[in-house]
Computed example of a mutant assay.
Amino acid sequence: MPGMSTVSAAELLDAWEAGWGRDPLRRGLALLGVARGTTPAAAADVPVGRRDRGLFALRAALFGTAVDAVSRCPECETEVEVAFDQEELLGRLGQADPEACDAVTVREGDREIRVRMPTSTDLAAVLDTGDPAPEEALVRRCAPVGEPAPAADVVAEAWVAADPLVDVRLGVGCPGCGLAWEEPFDIVGYLWAELDAWGRRTLLEVHELARAYGWTQAQTLALSPWRRQCYLGLVGT
């Protein structure tokens, strides 16, 4: 992905720490900031679909493309495994429309209205105010100032048509009762869960190797994951 930088283990630990105790939106910004070599504040102004495309690219670089998740049937509450390859998913969704990467045009009556694609800054503003109608509030933020905002459902359809990553949904079927439904897939939450597990494992590795060899965190992280595992296997022998 253009703008994607090589991420070190130390930078990932910093992003993990920065996102700790924050809401999912801010966690996503911390991750994207690391991936792009910029700040979370700068990442907040990236359109949501482009943001998530960057997070998919970061995840592929860190953990691979296979996704294994679990959903729950809304009818019988059976746990349903959801497994797919994210590259195949992204291929089916297609690329964002280059003509509408930053804004879309919707028609309402005899009006044509240019509406910005939503950014994390827009989402944060709506979430922080606790607006009882968040979809309408989001459209109002992205519509031209001083003009009546178009219908939220019309704008939402236009956003997804321009960039399908604005709202990723997976077709899921229950093996128990046969119910079929669409499950939203949140790359921010999924990637954060993987990073959290990785961060905990990495700190344990640093702790064990520091205790055994007296190495600093920087010295331990400078080793490749394979070599760290080799040294860990020697501890206690």
Score class of each variant (00 low, 15 high):
Gly130Asn: 03
Thr129His: 08
Thr105Pro: 02
Leu127Arg: 12
Ala124Ile: 01
Ala137Tyr: 10
Gly91Phe: 12
Val160Asp: 03
Ile113Phe: 02
Gln86Tyr: 13
Pro144Val: 10
Pro150Asn: 01
Ala103Glu: 11
Val126Cys: 07
Val154Gly: 01
Asp110Ala: 15
Val139Asn: 01
Glu135Ser: 13
Pro132Glu: 09
Gly146Cys: 11
Glu87Cys: 14
Gln95Arg: 09
Leu93Trp: 04
Asp110Thr: 15
Val160Pro: 00
Thr105Asn: 00
Glu157Arg: 15
Ala103Tyr: 07
Leu165Asp: 08
Gly94Pro: 00
Val104Thr: 08
Asp102Tyr: 14
Glu87Val: 15
Val126Glu: 04
Ala152Cys: 03
Leu127Asp: 09
Ala100Asp: 11
Ile113Pro: 11
Glu157Pro: 02
Glu108Arg: 10
Val126Gly: 07
Val145Trp: 02
Glu147Met: 08
Ala158Asp: 00
Ala156Phe: 06
Phe84Cys: 10
Val155Arg: 03
Val155Cys: 10
Arg116Trp: 03
Ala162Pro: 05
Ala100Lys: 15
Leu165Lys: 01
Val104Tyr: 08
Ala156Gly: 04
Pro164Asn: 11
Arg114Gly: 09
Ala96Pro: 04
Arg92Lys: 13
Thr121Met: 07
Gly91Glu: 14
Arg107Asn: 04
Val160Met: 04
Asp153His: 12
Ala133Met: 06
Leu165Gln: 07
Phe84Ser: 05
Pro98Gln: 11
Gly130Asp: 06
Ala100Gln: 15
Val82Ser: 04
Pro150Cys: 11
Arg107Pro: 01
Asp97Trp: 08
Ala83Glu: 13
Arg111Cys: 10
Ala162Ile: 14
Ala125Met: 10
Glu147Ser: 11
Met117Ile: 04
Asp85Tyr: 06
Gly94Met: 12
Pro134Ser: 05
Phe84Asp: 08
Glu147Val: 12
Pro132Thr: 14
Ala149Gln: 09
Asp153Val: 13
Val154Tyr: 00
Gly130Leu: 06
Gly94Gln: 12
Pro132Asn: 13
Gly94Phe: 11
Leu123Ile: 13
Pro132Ile: 12
Asp153Asn: 03
Gly91Leu: 12
Leu90His: 02
Ala103Lys: 08
Pro134Thr: 05
Val145Asn: 00
Arg141Gly: 06
Ala137Phe: 09
